[in-house]
Nucleic acid binder design. Structure first.
Lengths: 134, 134
DNA sequence: TTACTGTTAAATGAAAATGTTTAAAATTAT
DNA sequence: ATAATTTTAAACATTTTCATTTAACAGTAA
């Protein structure tokens, strides 16, 4: 059994891409077509997404849904909503506003633009006040 | 394409296990043998490990090894070591001591006992001062 | 326009994962 | 020690994933 989801081929392509090579340049290096490099890279990204989603599922296994942060919300407002909802459930969030926003951003950087959230975010919380985003 | 690594069967077993059921009880519920429940649960755990390892690989793609925190180290001492090593590399860690310790604990809670680290932890850092544990 | 970059679709063969049964072995609890 | 629980192994059929080729399509820059 392999220790991670990515095949050697996929890791190879990801490394070259990280170095800034184009798909054509990589194709020449590893003796295949650029279309193939494209599909390999895409498969790698799908595997990475799967890995993320798998861990997110685990979080929801011991956490309950807290609220949904709607697209377009300012992240300060989002943090306030999370604190309010947690209080309603009688749970104390284990982060202050700044740390909470950092965690939110880290969990899925693409969903942030400046101070705004670009896409709905589902928020989960467990009994220890640990918060997850999905 | 599935959105996560776990099959429906695996998620089902994990949920029942979380509720505290034995493998036999689950086997009866889903009409199969306990041996099968065992193998399904084991497969689920392998998938979870794969997901973790995949994300860890990504970190090492844009981060460099910073130091190794030795088993038995107090976590305050560990944080100091991380700051020192980062300074040697001319990188400013983007967390204060408290946040850094929280991240360390979150990354692998089983490796902590009270204030001590139970198992060696490899620390990686990227140019932005983002820190990863492994 | 021409060249380069990235994406997509369809088809194929090889490899790997999954769920299952049966049976035996190892662990843990009573 | 006995029973219950968990783990492991072998074998099998089904399904899924992977890398690959070929060919076409879209966007961008010279």
């Amino acid at each position: 059994m392999k220790e991670n989801l990515l095949t050697d081929r996929q890791k190879e392509v990801l490394r070259y891409r990280k170095q800034g090579l184009t798909q054509q340049q990589i194709a020449d290096l590893i003796n295949t077509s650029k279309a193939n490099v494209c599909t390999i890279e895409k498969a790698a990204q799908e595997n990475i997404k799967k890995a993320r989603d798998t861990l997110e599922f685990l979080y929801t296994l011991d956490a309950n849904h807290l609220c949904t942060i709607k697209e377009g919300t300012d992240f300060i407002v989002a943090a306030k909503e999370i604190f309010n909802e947690a209080e309603k459930m009688g749970i104390k969030v284990r982060y202050d506003t700044i740390s909470l926003i950092n965690r939110m951003r880290d969990s899925n950087p693409e969903r942030f633009r400046a101070r705004y959230i670009r896409e709905d975010i589902e928020v989960y919380i467990n009994g220890d006040g640990e918060v997850y985003f999905n």
